[in-house]
Amino acid sequence: MSPLDANQIVALFRVIARRLAEARSELGVLDGAIGDADHGNSMADGFAAVVRASAEAAAAGCAAGDLFAVAGRAFLNAVGATTGPLYASALLRAGQQFAGRAEIAAEDVPALVSAFAAGIRDRGKAQPGDKTMMDVWAPAARAAELPGDPLARLDRALRVAEEGRDATRAMVASVGRAARLGERSLGHIDPGAASAVIVIAALRDALARYLSEARP
């Protein structure tokens, strides 16, 4: 199994960006129920900026492992909002882990889920059960760390991610903007949890496609 080079990491970002662009208004509607309806825009704009900046950096010869720091800064400057610092921290954490590596092994791709989860947890300080994106990232990270081939690990991560997302429906928000709604946040899926599932699913699909194309 050949490792992913810089261009393939950019391709991976591109899949995430495309999925989020497709979900832009759907996420906005979810957010409108308990927030201010901007989450779809933030995520789509943020990853669009990630693709632009990382493609440029890759073309200029940036190593695959160094693209994550480039991506983190791009996301932050494009978005702001709440998502900006959170996903910027996620990407920067992955950047620390892979810094300097010219290529990233397919076996290491599931570790992105764990790195993202750690970065988001440390910046946002939300706990599982708070009805945030951490209700997806925390169980997904644990699932991705279990042994297995990389695609199976991401499949597992995606499955628990979806469960985590659906579980937010029964939670009362206790941090973030929706917290002001109190019990009225019950019954609604947290938009941050929904977009986290999209990111994980995109990672999984991008890896699956890479593996099938890489196979002789």
């Binding site: 901007d38 825009n41 400057n77 702001g80």
Partner: peptide, 11 residues
């Protein structure tokens, strides 16, 4: 000034 109802980034 940020995007609609979204904080500006640190920049």
């Amino acid at each position: 000034i940020g995007n609609l109802f979204a904080s500006p980034p640190p920049g």
